[in-house]
């Protein structure tokens, strides 16, 4: 019995060797694609990077659709019934600046940046798709009259926008999460997206 099994295995091994020698593996013709942003094979890459930032809670928390700022990584409504009020900077005597100063406060964990406040209702992004956010952002009737040049300046230079990458610590001393794209990459993506015509990809 063992002799028979050994014979069968020997025959299979021999057959395999014959096939292996006569039918060798084909050489791959694959060559690595060198990624170059200027002629990107992914035309939506700049848009995607930009939107990865704009839809992050560090930005979205202050672009609400209900005049109520959101807080934290889970975007809960601002404590104590705080709202943007008529001018997006609070009520008559309890304003954003009652607690938020021009820079983060490491002792209290209260975030801060110049002109801290809500985006106007016309720039409410909460609940919009990426394409809708972009449309709202490009619309001079809703964006505060900004043309493309002004938008690029706002998005790449405004201290409150750039706060997203310096968000400081929260009330428990924990560093706040930053957007998933670095500040430098975001700025490049914004500039390139506008330079390429600010095309909003279809959804």
């Amino acid at each position: 019995m063992n002799v028979k099994i050994a014979l069968i295995f020997s025959l299979l091994l021999f057959a395999g060797l014959i096939v292996g020698f006569t039918d060798s593996v084909a050489t791959s013709e694959y060559t690595a694609v060198v990624y170059n942003q200027s002629d990107s094979p992914l035309p939506n890459r700049n848009f995607d990077k930009m939107m990865d930032v704009l839809t992050h809670q560090r930005c979205m928390n202050c672009h609400p659709n209900d005049n109520i700022p959101k807080q934290g990584d889970e975007s809960h409504p601002h404590n104590f019934g705080v709202a943007g009020g008529e001018n997006d900077h609070g009520f008559q005597a309890i304003k954003c600046t009652t607690c938020h100063q021009p820079e983060n406060n490491a002792y209290s964990g209260v975030p801060g940046a110049p002109h801290w406040g809500l985006a106007p209702a016309s720039m409410a992004w909460e609940g919009l798709s990426r394409a809708e956010i972009a449309e709202s952002m490009l619309n001079m009737k809703t964006n505060g009259g900004k043309d493309h040049k002004a938008l690029v300046k706002h998005m790449t230079e405004d201290e409150l926008v750039l706060w997203a990458w310096q968000p400081g610590v929260d009330a428990s001393g924990k560093l706040r999460e930053v957007p998933p794209v670095s500040e430098a990459e975001f700025k490049t993506a914004v500039k390139q997206w506008f330079a390429n015509g600010a095309v909003i990809p279809s959804e």
Binding site: N79, F80, A93, I94, K95, T97, T98, C99, Q101, N105, Y107, S108, V110, A171
Partner: peptide
């Protein structure tokens, strides 16, 4: 900056002085 016990006025505006 949550409870307001530390509220003072700075140039006439209410400010939470702990923060």
């Amino acid at each position: 900056a949550a409870c307001g016990a530390c509220t003072v006025h700075v140039d006439g505006e209410a400010v939470r002085s702990c923060s």
